[in-house]
Each structure stands twice: as C-alpha cells, then as structure tokens.
Design a protein around this nucleic acid. Sequence first.
DNA 1: GGCGTGACCCCAT
DNA 2: TATGGGGCCACGC
Length: 105
Amino acid sequence: MSANTLSFKERCYQILSKVPEGKVTTYGEIAFALNCRAYRAVGRAMAGNEKLVVIPCHRVVRSDGSIGQYALGSERKAELLESEGVLVKDRKIENFTAYLHRFST
DNA sequence: GGCGTGACCCCAT
DNA sequence: TATGGGGCCACGC
C-alpha cells in the first residue's frame, strides 16, 4: 500500500535498491517489475535522480548489455560497475546476463 | 488540458 | 552483423 503512495520514480528507486552489489539490472526489468512498459519513464526517473548518492542508478544498464547513459557520464558508470566487480568491455558488460538480477523468483 | 522530450526496447531491412 | 524506424509511459512546459 505504502508503495502505491510512492511516485513512479520512488518505486523505481525501491526496485533498484533490491539489486545487490556486483549485480546489474535493465530498464525493462524495472518496468516489468512495476507491471508497466514504461521503460522510457524509468530512464527519465533516473535522469532526474537527486539521490545519486543514495540510489545506485549506475547498476542499471540496457537490455543489449550496453552501459547506457549516466548522470556523471557513461565512462564514470563503467568505472563504478568495474568497481562493483562487473567486467566491462568496450562500454559493454561482458556476460551481462550473468550479472543481471531478476526480481522474479 | 495537450504536445514534446527522454539514462529505452523491439522488429524489420 | 549493423542501421533505421516505430512504439511504449511518465514528466515538464
């Protein structure tokens, strides 16, 4: 219920918060977890993130395995992912599906 | 109240 | 395999 009172952005942050360190997720997965197809809206929610320090938005990548964009720059995002233990090759995640975290059991 | 944009995704060529 | 075009939802003006 309380989750329903949260805005779309807040829900995105909550789901993203469920992603453990060393793992990554995709915009589509987050949208799917919200029972919506608003993958665009998820990106917009992250783009306007003012909780950059609180929300690990750098763990969100594209379904292609590409890093995608980032508030501090895609390069910075890659550095953070590598720091998390995720192997990044040419701005793309190696075996990214292995690091992909699924919200459904 | 309506239009355009965006840290995207999928399909067809 | 790479490139282009269309479509989805939420937010700002």
